[in-house]
Amino acid sequence: MGPLETNGYLVHLNGAAVAVDPGGAPRPMLQYAEKNGLALTHILITHLHFDHIYGAAALAEASGAPVLAGGADAFLMETELGRGGAFGFPRVAPFSYQPVEEGDLDLGTIACRALATPGHTPGSLSFHFPQAGAVIVGDLLFHRSIGRTDFPGGDLDALRRSVVQKIFTLPDDTVVYPGHGPETTVGAEKLNNPYFTEFSL
């Protein structure tokens, strides 16, 4: 979704759905929800970079669902990384959100635990859905790569700790859904990600 081809996700169970990182106009999410009879209950944001939140305001308005994001990323909304506008990219429509800390989220029938995974940004969150055997990690971890840490608030050591302590402790068959590019698994990244070669020894 959006100008940087951000991966947006819909997680649903028994007619309820949550959206994660609506990075562009939310029409595809809304159409999928309507076609499948889903009620969108929450909008989750992995981090407050513009390419992950372009559709947040429109999706919240259309669905009435609250937006949840990491509180430590609030400063980003005062910068072009959060509100957009740099390099010819459009501005982000303003929206309100509820700050989220690490812990289980009350999403109704959908079990989800927010994991504090700073590094790409200070407030980066990953969302673990145990019923689906999946974790959505934003720009923390990619297929055979990791997220950038040269933006304001980025920290390479913190990112590596987040991956090792919060993601690599999940079952190896957990599917990892990143903010860009293809999905992977925890086990595959332990063995093959060049930034964590100690896990292949």
Rank of each mutant, 00 (worst) to 15 (best):
L4W: 00
T6C: 07
N7A: 06
G8Q: 02
L10K: 01
L13P: 00
L13Y: 02
N14W: 04
G15R: 04
G15Q: 03
A16R: 07
D21N: 09
P22W: 07
A25D: 13
R27Y: 09
R27S: 12
P28M: 15
L30T: 14
L30I: 15
Q31C: 11
E34L: 11
N36V: 14
G37A: 06
L40V: 15
T41E: 07
H42E: 15
H42V: 15
I43R: 11
L44E: 01
L48I: 11
H49R: 10
H52D: 13
H52Q: 12
A56S: 06
E61V: 02
S63R: 02
G64D: 12
G70T: 02
A72Y: 03
A72I: 00
D73M: 05
D73Y: 00
A74I: 10
A74P: 06
F75N: 13
M77N: 01
G88W: 09
G88A: 12
F89W: 08
P90S: 06
P90G: 11
A93Y: 13
A93D: 07
F95G: 08
S96D: 15
P99M: 06
E102S: 14
D104Q: 11
D104Y: 09
L105S: 00
L105A: 04
G108D: 00
G108I: 01
I110E: 08
I110G: 12
C112V: 01
R113Q: 08
G119T: 14
G119P: 15
G119L: 14
H120L: 11
T121C: 13
S124R: 02
L125T: 00
H128E: 05
F129E: 05
F129Q: 07
Q131T: 14
A134N: 01
A134S: 03
D139S: 03
L141F: 01
H143N: 09
S145G: 13
R148K: 10
T149Y: 12
G154S: 00
D155M: 08
D157Q: 03
D157H: 03
A158H: 05
L159G: 02
R160Q: 10
S162Y: 06
V164C: 07
K166W: 11
F168Y: 04
L170D: 13
D172T: 05
D172I: 02
D173V: 09
T174C: 12
V176I: 15
Y177L: 13
H180E: 10
G181N: 13
G181H: 01
G181S: 09
P182L: 08
E183L: 00
E183M: 10
T184C: 00
T184Q: 01
V186N: 07
V186P: 05
G187M: 03
E189T: 06
N192M: 01
N193K: 00
P194W: 09
F196D: 08
E198A: 13
F199L: 12
S200K: 10
S200L: 02
S200H: 05
S200E: 09
L201N: 06
